[in-house]
Write a protein that binds this DNA or RNA. Sequence first.
DNA 1: GAATGTGAAGGTTTTCACAGCA
DNA 2: TGCTGTGAAAACCTTCACATTC
Lengths: 217, 217
Amino acid sequence: MARRISRKISNSTIHRLSIYYRALMGLEREGYDTISSKELAKREKLTPAQVRKDLSFFGSFGTRGLGYPVKELKQRIAEILGLNRLWNVAMVGVGNVGSALVSYKEFARQGFIIKLLFDNDQRKIGSNHKGIIISDIANMKSQLKENEITIVILTVPASAAQKVCDDIVEAGVKAILNFAPVSLKVPDDVNLLNENMAIELEHLSFSLTNRNMVMFD
Amino acid sequence: MARRISRKISNSTIHRLSIYYRALMGLEREGYDTISSKELAKREKLTPAQVRKDLSFFGSFGTRGLGYPVKELKQRIAEILGLNRLWNVAMVGVGNVGSALVSYKEFARQGFIIKLLFDNDQRKIGSNHKGIIISDIANMKSQLKENEITIVILTVPASAAQKVCDDIVEAGVKAILNFAPVSLKVPDDVNLLNENMAIELEHLSFSLTNRNMVMFD
DNA sequence: GAATGTGAAGGTTTTCACAGCA
DNA sequence: TGCTGTGAAAACCTTCACATTC
């Protein structure tokens, strides 16, 4: 029986779990059977203690003196992250970003299956995009329910995002990945994550601009 | 004269600066002249103390009893983030993700101008993509230098990423936004940020899977 | 009165360091 | 011996609370 998690796991730990998972996929391909926290940390530019602490929240997967079994640890992290199953995903807004993400291989590889596409542009509705017919956003609510969609990727313009988001919430969806550059209001039981690629670039421009942080006064 | 920053600013603070910046753009459009930390925090689901503390690292921009002047604060944050100028950006790898990002409006709006596109696919090289000719990746190093590119967005397949990254570093570029799902090695003076949209989805699937975190043993 | 700016307190995350086990 | 697992310490980040200013 899977052990329940008894404390709040930090976002950083969850994020690193995804990083370990990818590293383990690579290690498996490279033929490793076991991996030490030291080596795993080195590859991902973390500390060995960090790796061990992160994993220890979920159980004891390693062997003292040896390290962690690559295949089993990978499988165990997949379980923790919920990747040992398929997730029905819908994409709302099939513009630039949306249409690129439909064919983003990394999603399908981890079990995120894009089942439905929605847009409000009459020219797009009914057309086939990478094997999926684009539906009218007017029918979204019922279709999200019928198709048991559990995750929505929101890629509509900022101005439309809150209204569309409200409909998604009303359809009972509890997880939204929002690409619109706007802060959305959702009930407490809905998981909303914001993704904004411009913000990452801004982080880079900050670093370049403030390259020499010198003591001044 | 711009005050130099005397301590290490945390990544979370930098990230929130981008959030404040977007909020201030909205407030300006809505006609606000001043905004209190309380109101700004409410809009972005933060605490007033957090807002004030973040801003205080960079100076005193507010007026006691009144709040912060929207226009000036926005301008000041733009300076801090390095958004009061243009950045020459190159995109390396014009596949699904890359080609979508070329027309991502949010980049140009913040001054990130995509000047060059590179790919290694002979069928793509020479073709015009949204007004930019796709160049042969074989000529990348010299062209990055000639065009004074300061930021590179890397959207090549994982298997090619490290080699391409090495060339980018050799061309003297100090900031890379990497979309390949692989951990890249760069020298200490190069700013590397990883962006992986699947990891965000995995965070959501973790939350859905571990929805009821119950004390157990 | 209202809201900033900021030391100090409180909380969270990371790192240390070592006991315990293969 | 080598490496995990983990309390305790250290570092870091957020919130509190209040003196200060408009």
